[in-house]
């Protein structure tokens, strides 16, 4: 690996580790200066790019999470009094959630606590027994699985979903490929969805939810099957969407992400919590 390749890899890894673009510029430039002056090999001086990026991110006390001045925008999603019963069991009991533009809400809870059901109600795919949902703007929804067509390749998916949003085939394809690139994926032309790995299919799923830039994004554990790098890319993208003023709801069971979001909706019932 020569200097430039190492520095390019470092840039990508810093981004993956949530280091902001300004600081990334400084860190990379400083490393470049050092390499020029010492004339030594980057792997010897700094080690592998991902390890060095992690050391830099750690020295910051974690990733650069939120921009300093953020005012929450107008309300984008307002769910009120959502109640749902399945076979006599109350799964959701008068649940409220309000998400504004530029906010990320995490929906957490034990298995079977109704996280996915709540999201499906917000998306209008399931009717609640009581309660209302108001959505300001368009809605993008990424299901936990499914949501893709076995016999279509990625570009055809982009054209199909983009067509609903009023995008032309070319626009949809460009937008889809840009979204895929942000997740470190370049979809091979002609490879049908049924031949993609689980993680890659989830990338497609996620990109499709984002097509046409909907104001509200509902993501149901979209990172299943992602490797660690893609997982970091995913959160990095979510923060970027938030900073672009989207309202995002993410179902997650990974509690270590909770400090990176603005709101947490815990669906674990008090009874379950006591048990």
């Amino acid at each position: 690996m020569n200097h430039n390749a190492w520095l390019a890899a470092l840039t990508g890894e810093l981004r993956r580790h949530g280091v902001g673009p300004d600081l990334t510029g400084h860190v990379v430039a400083e490393a470049a200066t050092h390499l020029t002056e010492s004339g030594e090999h980057p792997l010897r001086v700094f080690g592998p790019p991902d390890a060095y990026a992690r050391a830099v991110a750690d020295s910051l006390g974690g990733p650069d999470r939120r921009p300093p001045h953020r005012r929450p925008g107008p309300v984008r999603l307002a769910a009120q009094g959502i109640t749902k019963r399945y076979r006599g069991r109350t799964v959701l009991d008068r649940v409220d959630l309000t998400v504004r533009a530029g906010e990320i809400a995490a929906v957490v809870g034990a298995n079977g606590s109704g996280k996915s059901t709540f999201l499906r109600i917000c998306a209008g795919l399931v009717s609640p027994d009581a309660g209302t949902v108001r959505v300001h703007g368009a809605l993008g929804y990424c299901p936990q699985d499914g949501g893709t067509a076995e016999f279509l390749d990625a570009d055809e998916h982009f054209a199909l979903v983009g067509g609903g949003r009023g995008l032309t085939r070319d626009t949809a394809r460009r937008a889809g490929r840009a979204g895929a690139a942000a997740l470190d994926w370049s979809p091979p032309a002609g490879t049908q969805a049924r031949h993609l790995s689980g993680g890659t299919r989830q990338k497609l799923n996620l990109v499709l939810a984002r097509l046409g830039e909907p104001e509200v994004l509902l993501l149901d554990e979209p990172y299943q099957g992602f490797d660690r790098g893609t997982y970091l890319d995913f959160w990095h993208e979510v923060w970027r969407w938030r900073d672009a003023g989207k309202a995002i709801v993410v179902v997650t069971h990974l509690l270590n992400q909770l400090d990176r979001v603005d709101l947490v909706l815990d669906l674990t019932t008090p009874r379950e919590r006591a048990a």
Partner: peptide, 23 residues
């Protein structure tokens, strides 16, 4: 002391306000 060790220390010192830096 390799760069991989030194620069994160510098960054931490800068972040905690003990050092200032400019190009």
């Amino acid at each position: 002391v390799q760069g991989g060790t030194l620069y994160p220390v510098l960054l931490r010192l800068q972040r905690s306000g003990l050092l200032t830096a400019h190009w």
